[in-house]
């Protein structure tokens, strides 16, 4: 086997692993989000007999949003609500983690610096947007 085709095969195998990784991040993120939201709603329903969760929300970013609920976790009433919030946070972080996984891949597996820069740009903009307020 020639060196060139071996190199090609290696690149193709790497890309395959990247596809699998990205695919798992996406699926895992959505399933985690659904699980938290469903359990949170069910718990809330068992507590109150109502399905709808009441939220009063002011403008805040994703982290403040979760931290705000965590702060109130001492009150038993709000624990189901926290699960719903974590679910929504997990959903929002799914594409973010997908981009992050791509960055690691381009950097450490492919050593493709052009795409490390592109992915880094996307990740920075998303990070900025998550901290917006």
């Amino acid at each position: 086997m020639s060196g060139a085709s071996r190199e090609q095969e290696r690149a193709s195998a790497l890309e395959g692993r990247m596809d699998v990784l990205v695919s798992y991040v996406l699926l895992g993120g959505v399933l985690t989000a659904v699980l938290f939201v469903v359990v949170g709603l069910a718990w809330h329903w068992l507590n109150t007999g109502q399905l709808g969760v009441d939220y009063r929300i002011s403008g805040m970013n994703l982290f403040e949003f979760v931290v705000d609920d965590l702060r109130q976790v001492g009150s038993a009433q709000l624990r189901p609500r926290l699960l719903v919030s974590i679910g929504i946070a997990a959903l929002m972080l799914t594409p973010y983690l997908r981009v992050f996984a791509s960055l690691l891949f381009f950097a450490f597996a492919e050593h493709n610096w052009k795409y490390v820069a592109f992915t880094g740009f996307v990740l920075s903009v998303l990070t900025y947007s998550l901290f917006l307020r």
Partner: peptide, 28 residues
């Protein structure tokens, strides 16, 4: 679409337009 929607979501979340109590049933 997913990444683009995340960027949009962040802006609406920061503006306080997203009500998680309504997002839950819609998302499911």
């Amino acid at each position: 679409i997913g990444v683009t929607a995340l960027a949009g979501t962040s802006v609406y979340l920061a503006a306080g337009v997203i009500d998680p109590g309504l997002v839950a049933p819609v998302m499911l």
